[in-house]
Amino acid sequence: MMQGIQINSAQSRAKLSLPSMIKSIKSNRNLIYQMSKREILGKYKGSALGILWSIITPMIMLIIYTFIFSVVFKAKWNHGGDESKYEFAVVLFAGLLTHTFLAEVLNKSPGLITGNVNYVKKVVFPLEILPVINIVTCCFNALISIGVLLVAILLVKNDIPWTAIQLPLVFFPLVILASGLSWFLASFGVFIRDIGQSITIFTMVLSFLSPVFYPISAVPAILRPWLMLNPLTFIIEQVRNVLIWGVNPNYLGLLLYTLCALAVCWLGYAWFQKTRKGFADVL
């Protein structure tokens, strides 16, 4: 009897492990692909331009930012060197798309389970892939925005730095972190329904607590260490380094960030798997 309990306990711990998380994603990759594809296409279903809206929307936003900050405010980032009047908008957009990716993931996460109650009732359905599908669809939107940004950089600077090829290396740690947070919030969203509204406010505030609209140098020195505690700050700076300034990323910083992100990702997955048994009772 005791041996059976020990075996069940060991199997339960194995389901919460990092290898179990990777195995689940790998074994369900086709389902993730199909559901992500359906989610992306379904967003624009019935519209005249369809998926082209995913390109048009960031283009319009970039044009608006360029006009407001470069033409109206004549803002300068003061990064050094000759800065054209349009460069501020490009630098701002690089920070904004990074924040938008994380904000979109977090805002959608609390409703992933409550919005798919029919999947909760199906014992065989792998609920843990819903946050992964959320990540994939948000990554798709981010890729479109990055494509628009690269075209804008080419038009503004007449060149794209070779360091831009390192963008996946810079962005991937944020994807890992967002995955863990998505698992956490998807679970919390079942038991605490107010968390959806709270996260919306939080992500809005986060945009002003991140160096999206201003350089870090504009923040008083005494407050900069607190700004660096924001998980977006480091990634936004590295995205700008490789895409705009042509500077190699901080490899050591990315390594440390990735390790922390992996810890959050595993904890989020483990928490989700641990609490999923109570989803059906609440819903």
Rank of each mutant, 00 (worst) to 15 (best):
I235M: 01
L243K: 10
N250V: 02
S198V: 14
I135G: 07
P211H: 06
S198M: 15
E128S: 15
V71K: 15
P168F: 04
Q6F: 11
L143P: 03
A263D: 06
G268L: 01
L49W: 11
L106N: 10
G46C: 05
P110N: 15
I244S: 07
I55E: 05
L16R: 15
D194K: 07
Y257R: 02
N158V: 03
R29Q: 09
Y257C: 04
P131T: 14
L150Y: 07
S12M: 12
F213Q: 03
L255E: 13
A164H: 00
K23E: 13
I133G: 02
L155I: 14
K85M: 13
D281A: 02
V120A: 07
L18N: 11
S17R: 02
P249T: 02
Y44G: 05
Y214R: 04
M228V: 07
M204A: 10
T258W: 08
F184R: 09
T275I: 02
M61D: 11
V156Y: 04
F188V: 15
S207N: 07
R38V: 00
I216T: 12
Q238P: 10
L92V: 09
K122L: 09
R193S: 14
S182K: 12
T233R: 01
I144S: 05
L41P: 08
P173W: 07
K37H: 10
P231T: 06
W266T: 05
H99A: 01
V120P: 03
C138E: 05
I244C: 08
D281E: 12
I129K: 11
E83Q: 14
Q197A: 13
L16N: 14
W183I: 10
A221Y: 10
V219S: 13
S12K: 14
S70N: 14
S179R: 02
I216L: 14
H99Y: 12
R240W: 01
S187V: 03
I133V: 15
N8G: 12
T66H: 05
M21K: 07
Y119I: 03
N250G: 06
Y44L: 04
F279E: 09
E128L: 03
L206H: 03
I146V: 15
L52D: 08
I222H: 08
S17W: 01
L181M: 15
I176H: 06
T114W: 08
S210A: 09
L174D: 07
I222A: 11
Q3C: 03
G95E: 06
G46R: 11
F208E: 04
L149G: 04
T233K: 01
K74G: 04
L143T: 08
G278Y: 15
I7C: 01
V175C: 04
V90R: 08
S24M: 05
Y269G: 10
A164G: 00
I135L: 14
I216R: 11
N30D: 08
L62T: 08
T100P: 00
L254A: 09
N8D: 15
N28C: 05
G115S: 07
V91R: 03
I63V: 13
G42L: 03
W226G: 11
L252D: 10
I195A: 10
I195P: 11
V170L: 01
V123E: 15
G4F: 04
L181V: 13
